[in-house]
Amino acid sequence: MKVLKIEKRDKTGKGAAKSLRREGKIPVVIYGHGEEPKSAVVSKNDLKTYLHEHKEEIIRLGPGRGKNVIIKDVQYDPVTEELIHIDFMHIHKGESLKASIPLILDGTAVGVKEGGVLEQWVREIEIECLPKNLPDAIRIDISGLKTGESLHIEDLSVAEDVKILLPPDEAIASIMAPRREEVKVAVEEEVEEEAVEEEAVEEKTEEEMEK
């Protein structure tokens, strides 16, 4: 397995992180397994090529032979949507880990073909398993789903060693009937009444001034 090179980062904080990003690097933090969190930096280009070559959830982070990690959290710039920070978490062979795995809905539902709208309530599934059993994604076929029907967590099929940490009755996707245009009626409130009263007072004072 190829190793993604990281460098140790001494300077932390907003200014230091900004100057690193200007150089084409991404500040990262590595934690887990009861160890002290370590600040590091990874080259944006290296990360890009690494992620294109490796589609697995587990990443090998170096220097040297490196350690196995998973991406725990990613931060994006709210305006430019560029990557600004990554959290890596150490994983150990015999130790189970908790991770969020993308949920992918396969196929086109019968309800959608009839004009319904597919609503996906859950997009990531939190699971607990050993690193070797970590799936890249959980897939479910929705082609049989009719209008008004829902899929729940209990409908998902995963390997025996993988434990889903969400309640089994939680809905993950539904086919809703197409809705009619709603006519929203603005609720007139007490504020309006008070405003009228205040205007009346203002008019009165103006009259007094003219006198």
Binding site: L51, H52, Y76, L83
Partner: peptide, 10 residues
């Protein structure tokens, strides 16, 4: 639009 993951963001 919704992104596929970190690989698409960089």
């Amino acid at each position: 639009t919704r992104k596929g993951g970190i690989g698409e963001a960089i």
